[in-house]
Design a protein around this nucleic acid. Structure first.
Lengths: 227, 227
DNA sequence: CCGTGTCTGTCCAAAACAGCACAACCCAAA
DNA sequence: TTTGGGTTGTGCTGTTTTGGACAGACACGG
């Protein structure tokens, strides 16, 4: 963890709308930057929770571990998202998920109390945060619906497509950096056998390719759309 | 839909904390009350969305319908919750779920713009709303985790236990009013055959009983906890 | 060069599950 | 009382999924 100031303040995600990143820097909040290497853990299920993070750069995943040691991925988060926000209101100030970097990441750390103070002071920021919460809600709900409606084959296809669009800023191609079938399985909510089976099927059908990294073609959409 | 004023303002859910219901009435917002009979629809997937609702009394379920006509339940909501809140920030002002009453319900209707105005004016209310969003987040996420980790037998057990605690205010006993196996199946994310199979198993094992209504014993927890 | 660890491709039996069909039952409306 | 709609109990078939195993491929450092 290191303290420094950034230069890339306005990254132009949404030029017309309020920019939470720039705002937080101006307000003197979230000056503490956290850098994570790939697969480094930001916080773990069970840790004390007294800070919120804002993703400036990189991708993270949120996972949960069951009593029987099984691991499941509940969210994939890219730059522009908040992480660990549930500590703001929760009575139990404990992390309920584990946050792990999927790539090199840069985060702003905002102390819980600071976050609450700023939410009160600045309506524009509060609005952005509420929007974020609502959007997050919709996303998790979409995952739940996906889980309820679709077979693991379709879910795998969906995860691959999401991951492909994930690295859009960094890698111009539809190449997913490096992700084991084991991890894919836990994102999809199935076993590695299954993932392997479908990956090979997708490859035979020309939906994905394996040149070094994993390349996802948009034709993979057919898997989701077709009966 | 009918307009009237209620008397049961302070229902004493959480005496120490801010009461959104009382506040909304004082602020002159949400005077419009909506009464629903059991299984009446509040709004449907695809409807225009320009109001938020607050549940004063009763229970609702949120469902989604897939392209192939399958229906899935994504949330069960009891009194004290907001419904339809995602229209506040969403660009597409369209309902993405269907909200249906599970019992007789009374809701406060709050126009979208009113809601935003009040959120800006009153910090205490804004705080409560953010808390609600965070809590909702945790709940949906818990459902997702449940879906990822557990078999349909355990998921059914969980839904039954949730439903049992549901009617706590109204019915002192662990009796669930009336809910068909078909509906249970769509809550659990499986088929009626499966639900029927497990219901009979639970009954044989003494975890549930059928006297008129459905009675859920706490021993049903064993299904979830045990291997 | 050799171990060591991680990842992939492959296979298999057992369990879980979907999808369907049909009879029995209950209850309320005619 | 009869009728019909909604619900439940039950059985069956074929499919999907699990959970494990094992060998080969590969990278890395000693």
């Amino acid at each position: 963890m290191q303290v420094s100031e950034t230069k890339s303040s306005a990254r132009g995600r949404e030029p017309r709308t309020f920019n939470p990143e720039a705002f937080l820097e101006e307000a003197g909040v979230g000056r503490t930057l956290v850098d994570l290497k790939k697969s480094q853990v930001l916080f773990s299920q069970g840790d004390a929770a007294d800070a919120v993070f804002y993703i400036k750069k990189g991708n993270l995943k949120l996972t949960v571990i069951s009593q029987r040691g099984k691991e499941a991925t509940v969210a994939l988060l890219e730059a522009g998202n908040f992480v660990g926000e549930s500590c703001i209101a929760a009575a139990e100030r404990i992390r309920i998920v584990t946050a792990t970097a999927l790539s090199r990441c840069t985060l702003m750390r905002i102390e819980r109390k600071e976050m609450i103070r700023v939410l009160h002071q600045e309506h524009a920021f509060s609005d952005v945060f509420v929007s974020f919460l609502l959007a997050r809600n919709v996303r998790i709900q979409a995952d739940l619906v996906d889980q309820l409606f679709n077979s693991s084959e379709k879910r795998l296809a969906r995860v691959l497509l999401l991951l492909a669009r994930f690295g859009k800023e960094e890698e111009p191609e539809n190449v997913i950096p490096k992700i084991s079938q084991e991890v894919l399985a836990e994102m999809v909510g199935t076993t590695r056998s299954r993932v392997n089976f479908f990956m090979n099927r997708f490859r035979k059908l020309g939906f994905i390719e394996y040149n070094g990294g994993l390349e996802v073609h948009s034709s993979l959409l057919n898997v989701i759309l077709h009966d």
